[in-house]
Design a protein around this nucleic acid. Structure first.
Lengths: 208, 208
DNA sequence: GTCTATATAGGGATAGAC
DNA sequence: GTCTATCCCTATATAGAC
């Protein structure tokens, strides 16, 4: 593996574990057993490393969110779909840990992150409308607007919330399942009886 | 006003506006037209300032959350109650802006913040149970558990979410009302017809 | 209580040899 | 590509005069 890629990989790991502001370029070099000078041969600045990691994250999240749904998703689809979202956030959780701090240092990142948020809200809205049209869900467009915002909030901040609550988030990411459950429980009360029962059943399976 | 109190006041203001990590003790002294040395006559460290501001916040939040509800709250009560929560967060929003960062530097703060979170969840749970007992709400205890967690997430992170979305949060805190609405819309679908209509009506009044 | 001056430390980043 | 050495800057914090 090339040094450049190793730097990105180790940086991501250290940022996720300790938070980006606490990890210096020297820490990264130390952990890799290379010199600080060598790191700066491969990257102009710490900011460039962060920017590239963000780009990786964005590509991945875009791929997940763009997943075109041909048919109306059933509950199992939604579960898997949300799980992909949470997995992406989990792997790049350093961005969320110090979100304001990181975004305020770089306008481009801010713009791009905002796009991801809007896309989240739009995707949630579109899915809900599809469910309403299919007769599975019962909600006004006002309901859906508020619901989509709440879905975005919970999907965005759930891991932060769990992290603060637990002190140390368990490394295995076992909180992802609970996060998915939380988001689906936002949707549940708007579903008709059958879909709702199906959701309960799936929840019990995956949380067990 | 004594210098010591002015330092706390200005620090809060600058932290809220620019984020705690970006405000140095020199900035604070500069803004007040005193010397850095003078600041350190009044406080041992920057951390002590943060700790005291946090204490102020905690006292205030405790006062809000401990409000003993004798009777089952109606929708208007809940609106006002939530508004107090959001106002407290708004006035000490620097804590939330860099939450992980700040809590990871100080175990005591972490413990205390966790207590606030648990109390939020417990309060939400208690209110929901009261509503169920009063026949206004229809929800299983499993529903309530998930709902209370979601209430806590949205109440905790709504202002962050809005801040990221908007770029610059409007100074007037006009987002507080929308935050309250978002939280209440979590509860709405579990309410029976009458309470739900009442909620819609109030929402329109306050959001107008 | 308040100032000026300064110590100390650490982080980002570069120069130049190998 | 990689290293050693070092520069520059900024941040917290202290010493000692007034």
């Amino acid at each position: 593996m090339k040094t450049r890629d190793r730097i990105l990989q180790i940086s991501l790991q250290l940022f996720n574990e300790h938070g980006e502001p606490r990890i210096t370029t020297n820490h990264i070099a130390d952990e890799m057993d290379i010199s600080p000078g060598n790191l700066y041969y491969h990257f102009r600045s710490k900011d460039e490393i962060i920017g590239l990691l963000f780009q990786q994250f964005e590509r991945r999240m875009d791929a997940v969110l763009q997943t075109p749904e041909r048919r109306v998703p059933d509950m199992e689809d939604m579960w898997l779909y949300l799980h992909l979202v949470f997995e992406s956030i989990w792997e790049y959780r350093f961005i969320y840990r110090d979100l304001d701090n990181i975004l305020s240092r770089n306008k481009k990142l801010r713009t791009h992150f905002r796009r991801i948020l809007e896309r989240k809200i739009n995707t949630a809205t579109a899915i809900c409308k599809g469910l309403v049209d299919a007769g599975v869900m019962d909600a006004t467009s006002e309901d859906i607007a508020a619901l989509a915002r709440n879905i975005a909030v919970v999907a965005t901040y759930w891991l932060n919330f769990q992290g603060v609550r637990a002190g140390a988030v368990s490394d295995e990411g076992s909180n992802l399942g609970l996060g998915v459950y939380q988001v689906l429980s936002l949707v549940a009360p708007f579903l008709n009886g059958e879909a709702r029962r199906l959701l309960q059943q799936i929840s019990r399976e995956y949380l067990a």
